[in-house]
């Protein structure tokens, strides 16, 4: 956060033109990310995932993403050719999705997938690559990496699969990691372990992290800064530690509608949506 930001986004818009008319999923979003953990929080339909995907230019037709400015460490992402963008995606900006089952090749062993990913990025012998793969799995706290290397994706539990995904994404040491609901499919205890790994990696490597989630409580305890999105707009940007002092009624509503252990057993506060927020 001290020097110039890693990522600058200005007036990002994502539109979908279908036979039933035009819908805007993201409507003018601007933010900056340094080497820090930024959380994007919102409910379904808030456009949080679309925001993450459009940074990597992964919006599929009929969707169209536009921005006044989309700069990543001095590079204009919008001006890159599709080929250079592909290189950018692997090498400098990585993305982790919600369900590792859809991101790993189901008919290849984990080991072969990791080795292949390594060989794409650097010239390295097969045995060297294997050694590196083992080391990487150990880095994401996998206890018996040998077994995982020879396993197929379906043989891994959700938490294990997500760790493998993270390991794979970190092969080229990206500067920015976009994690889209990386732990939502996991049990709470596993969820925290995966977050701890992510946290360590961000600290050790000085990566920037965009953490997209619907879980305000989790984001507020994990990230440095939180962007709250509602219907395609950022309604509030706030330091995670100051979340309890949030001003926007939507943020407050999201915080208050959660049941809490030891809380009162009165009916929960219900979020009253205001058309003026949109």
């Amino acid at each position: 956060m001290t020097d110039e930001p890693l990522l600058e986004v200005e007036n990002l818009r994502v539109r979908f033109e279908t036979s039933r008319g035009v819908t805007e999923a993201v409507r003018g979003v601007s933010f900056q990310v340094g080497r820090e953990r930024v959380g994007i929080v919102g409910e379904s339909g808030s456009g949080k995932s679309m925001t993450g995907r459009s940074i990597l230019r992964l919006i599929r037709p009929p969707g169209v993403a536009t921005a006044d400015r989309l700069m990543f460490s001095g590079i204009d992402l919008q001006a890159l050719s599709e080929r250079r963008m592909r290189a950018m995606r692997g090498r400098r900006i990585a993305m982790v999705m919600q369900d590792p089952k859809y991101s790993l090749n189901p008919v290849m062993r984990i080991g072969s997938q990791l080795v292949e990913a390594l060989k794409v990025h650097e010239r390295i012998s097969k045995s060297k690559a294997r050694e590196r793969a083992l080391q990487m799995l150990a880095d994401v706290q996998i206890r018996d990496p040998e077994r995982v290397l020879s396993a197929y994706p379906h043989e891994l539990s959700g938490g294990m699969g997500q760790r493998v995904m993270i390991a794979m994404m970190l092969i080229p040491s990206p500067d920015l990691l976009i994690a889209d609901e990386p732990t939502s499919a996991l049990d709470v205890t596993v969820q925290l372990e995966v977050l701890r790994i992510l946290d360590g990696l961000v600290k050790d490597r000085g990566m920037g992290l965009i953490f997209i989630s619907h879980d305000l409580r989790l984001v507020s305890t994990f990230c440095d800064r939180v962007l709250v999105m509602y219907l395609g707009k950022i309604v509030e940007e706030i330091d995670a530690s100051r979340l309890q002092d949030a001003e926007h009624p939507y943020t407050r509503g999201l915080l208050e509608c959660l049941p809490a252990i030891g809380g009162s057993h009165e009916p929960l506060k219900v979020l009253k949506r205001d058309e003026a927020w949109a």
């Binding site: 925290l192 946290d199 989790l218 305890t221 252990i261």
Partner: peptide, 23 residues
């Protein structure tokens, strides 16, 4: 639950986990 008066470690883990991430 409110008093954290639980006897098993597992329940305690779940209780801590439900409060979010602890640095």
């Amino acid at each position: 639950l409110a008093d954290h008066a639980v006897s098993s470690d597992y329940t305690r883990t779940l209780l801590t986990a439900s409060e979010g991430y602890v640095r």
